[in-house]
Computed example of a mutant assay.
Amino acid sequence: MKNNHPCILPHIKPEPGDGERRYREAYARRKIRLDRKYVISCNQSEVPLSVPWDPSNQVYLSYNNVSALKMLVSKTDWVLATEINKVQLYTLEDNTFLSFKLDIRVTVKAKQTFNLLSDLRRRKEWDPYYKECQLLQQVNEDDAIYHVISTVRSAEGKLQDYVILASRRPPCDTGDPYVVAFRSVSLPTHPPIDEYSRGETLCSGFCIWSEGDKTKVSYYNQFTPGLVSQVTTNIAGLSSDFASTYQACERFLVENTKDSERDVNTPEP
């Protein structure tokens, strides 16, 4: 512990030759164990994760989207799995669900960060897992439905696509975060097509807090099978792409501070 915060011990440096080989094999074994454990825990994949979008019930669906993320944020049993270049990766096991979160701190103001991260169409500028994103429906000032094409391929070798409800909310009270919540919905006008493999996200999103001259940005995601391999590769120490992705997010926020003065739903001049 350091300043009441958990910290990662320095990496072990293996001996050359057989020591390095055994070191790499140990990481590989750890990833295999994590994959087995996390795939088994993804029991929620046995039923559809998407909810039908119903305009007559949109207030409830949007509220539920935000409240599900807030409930995930309120969990207290997060475990620090790894930290690279000040990007922290945590995991949480909660009954049949398994989740992860990423923490970074940036020098961009919380409201500006909120405006930039609210617009999913811009996420491809920093997130390598986003190939394309199209706004399908602007439900109201704070809720929108997007079609996302991912760079991740399914077991069938097709790119995955998603239909996502994004719900953004400013703080309700002092100390509360800005919230941008995501979950999969189904639209009759945009059914799955043969070109893509339709993916689903149960609960994910950003929470953004002001911390003096810094802003804390946390990204949360409940596991679905399509994410398991990516996350366990990082937990096992075989990749650091989560760190490079969220360092790219920080650069995106800093470089686009001027754009962030305009609310995401304000028309271009």
Rank of each mutant, 00 (worst) to 15 (best):
V185D: 08
N65F: 07
D94W: 05
T151Y: 00
N234G: 09
C172Q: 08
L69W: 06
Y220H: 12
K75H: 10
N140K: 05
D119W: 08
S50F: 06
N221E: 15
H190W: 02
V108M: 10
S56L: 14
D263T: 04
I208N: 15
N234T: 04
K13A: 15
P267I: 07
K124R: 13
Y162F: 15
N265W: 11
V106D: 12
K258R: 09
I235V: 15
N4E: 15
D54A: 09
N57V: 04
Y38G: 03
S154W: 01
Y129F: 14
P55C: 08
D18S: 08
E255L: 11
K258Q: 11
Q222R: 13
L136I: 10
T257A: 14
K13P: 03
Y178H: 06
C7M: 14
T107S: 14
R153C: 06
K214N: 09
Y178E: 03
G205E: 08
K86I: 01
Q44K: 07
N234A: 10
A181Q: 03
K70D: 10
D173T: 10
V47L: 13
F100T: 01
L69M: 08
T233V: 00
H11S: 14
P14N: 14
V254R: 13
E261W: 00
C207Q: 07
D127L: 03
G237D: 07
N234E: 09
V217I: 09
T257I: 10
S244M: 04
N265R: 11
T245F: 02
A181Y: 02
P16F: 12
R22Q: 15
Q112G: 15
A81R: 11
R105C: 15
E261Y: 06
D77F: 05
E125M: 14
F100K: 03
C203M: 10
P269E: 10
R251D: 10
V163E: 00
P225F: 00
E93P: 05
S150K: 02
D103S: 12
R21S: 08
I235H: 10
N65C: 15
A26T: 08
S197R: 01
A155C: 08
Y27C: 12
P269N: 12
C249T: 06
Q134G: 03
L187A: 04
K216T: 13
L92Q: 06
N57G: 05
A166M: 04
R122K: 13
H11A: 15
P170L: 09
I149M: 01
Y60I: 05
H190P: 02
L135V: 11
V163M: 04
T257W: 01
F114D: 07
S167C: 09
W78T: 03
V180F: 09
D241F: 04
Y129Q: 06
F114S: 07
F252W: 08
L227N: 06
R30I: 08
S186V: 03
A166V: 06
E261M: 04
